[in-house]
């Protein structure tokens, strides 16, 4: 079909990132940032295995993989929203420049996240 858009690729990852961010990120913040600190037993119990709590959790490879995936999808979600907002605000840049800048930034965030996670 002529004129077929390739936007579905960006849009579907954007949609997935939105769902993942909405469902998991509040839980992660609660569990690691609030629950543990408040001495919520299920969390502090799980964290108590290592001296450094969160670090012990992050030494499990599957935990790192899931966190990395959540961060990457959330970054793509944000990039897509920022790209379309810039267009709506009449930022006159060639479409390819906006695509590279926005999703490129998401890629950089994802790679940095992967590096940080790999250090544990």
């Amino acid at each position: 079909m002529r004129g077929r858009s390739h936007e579905p690729i960006f849009w579907s990852v954007f949609g997935l990132g939105g769902i993942v961010a909405a469902i998991f990120i509040p839980v992660i913040i609660f569990v690691t940032g609030i629950g543990g600190a408040a001495g919520w037993e299920a969390v502090s119990g799980a964290l108590a295995h290592g001296e450094d709590g969160i670090g012990a959790l992050l030494r499990h490879a599957p935990v790192r993989a899931v966190l990395g995936l959540i961060m990457a999808l959330a970054a793509v979600h944000a990039a897509h929203r920022i790209r379309h907002t810039l267009i709506d605000l009449h930022v006159h840049a060639p479409p390819a420049v906006l695509i590279v800048a926005s999703y490129g930034a998401a890629a950089v965030v994802s790679v940095l996240t992967a590096i940080v996670l790999a250090l544990f």
Partner: peptide, 17 residues
């Protein structure tokens, strides 16, 4: 209707404001 709707100028330019 598919050809018209599935172009960039169809649904995909919408930024869901």
């Amino acid at each position: 209707r598919r050809d018209v709707i599935l172009k960039d100028e169809g649904i995909w330019e919408c930024s869901f404001v």
